[in-house]
């Protein structure tokens, strides 16, 4: 491929090849503080390419490719090339990761122990992780929490934080503008802006943490909390994992361990400040 970028995020190395310079330039700027893949050999290959040669110039459309692909992933306009790269990298993890149980969750850490926050799109897990990251917590990741089946520890995957729509402004008030990527307006998921995790999140990304609290946040409701039974947690976590079935018995071991050992709470919140207070209060009560 013409333009190439390599990076390591947590335990996963990536190689991104592109027919265009622009997405690679953006990746280079935003991932400047990250290391290269271990031994120079990435775990996953991502390709951003023009499905038809003329699409390189004429209304350029970025098709997503790589080691693992979904058959019907729609191309994105070149102006959203950064989003295409991020989506394709996530897809490699979602479909190809076999070393860790992958939970669709954000994670923050303090004193070696982690809070995992999972929920449907729009639940606010990226927003909360970014805001907690701005208040002294270490951001471990806003998209995937990686559980090691052998140890039960959670490993960090601190990729760029993907903020959508109103969350862009909310987090924008709390962190310096220099850490933001370009505003990608009118994407299939609305407006998106990427946030570079703070330097300590990157510097310490190889430090795993003990999962200590599992939260199921829900945005847009009056403040409320509720306990969840083990079977409900089990069902919701398997739904939030893209590789639970593929991991076989290792996935079962990792999942039952989380369900058994990690206290869980569902929290409803009307605004970010209220959510942060609930998280801190639950943490202090542990």
């Amino acid at each position: 491929m013409r333009h190439i970028f390599q990076v390591r995020i947590g335990p996963a190395g990536f190689r991104v090849g592109s027919d265009w310079r622009a997405p690679i330039a953006e990746l280079e700027r935003l991932y400047a503080g990250y290391p290269a893949p271990e031994n120079g050999v990435p775990d996953f290959t991502v390709r951003l390419f023009a499905a038809r040669p003329w699409r390189r110039w004429l209304r350029p459309a970025v098709t997503l490719g790589g080691d693992f692909v979904l058959p019907d992933a729609a191309p994105l306009p070149l102006s959203q090339g950064l989003l295409a790269a991020e989506m394709a990298m996530n897809l490699q993890m979602a479909l190809g990761q076999r070393r860790y149980l992958l939970l669709h969750a954000s994670a923050v850490e303090r004193e070696g122990r982690a809070v995992l926050m999972t929920g449907l799109s729009g639940a606010g897990k990226s927003t909360l992780a970014a805001l907690l990251g701005a208040r002294g917590w270490r951001l471990m990741g806003d998209e995937f929490a990686l559980i090691d089946p052998a140890t039960g520890m959670v490993h960090a995957f601190p990729r760029l934080v993907s903020l959508k729509n109103a969350a862009i402004g909310v987090v924008g008030d709390a962190v310096p503008q220099a850490r933001f990527g370009p505003l990608l307006a009118g994407t299939p998921k609305g407006d998106i802006r990427h946030l570079v995790p703070d330097p300590q999140a990157v510097a310490r990304m190889d430090e795993p943490a003990q999962p200590a609290l599992l939260l199921f946040p829900r945005f847009g409701f009056a403040i409320a909390q509720r306990d969840l039974g083990p079977s409900e947690i089990f069902v919701r976590l398997t739904q939030a994992s893209t590789n639970y079935v593929a991991l076989g018995e290792r996935g079962f071991d990792a999942m039952t361990r989380v369900v058994r050992d990690v206290p869980a709470r569902a929290i409803d919140y009307p605004n970010a400040e209220a959510a942060i207070q609930q998280v801190e209060a639950l943490w202090n009560a542990l």
Binding site: G229, P230, F234, V235, T238, Y244, V245, E249
Partner: peptide, 22 residues
């Protein structure tokens, strides 16, 4: 079989198929 009682539900991993049943 790996049988793990949770609450009213029991989760069972069936090794030959690799599937989990609640």
């Amino acid at each position: 079989l790996r049988i793990v009682p949770l609450d009213d539900f029991t989760v069972i991993f069936h090794r030959p198929s690799g599937l989990t049943h609640l």
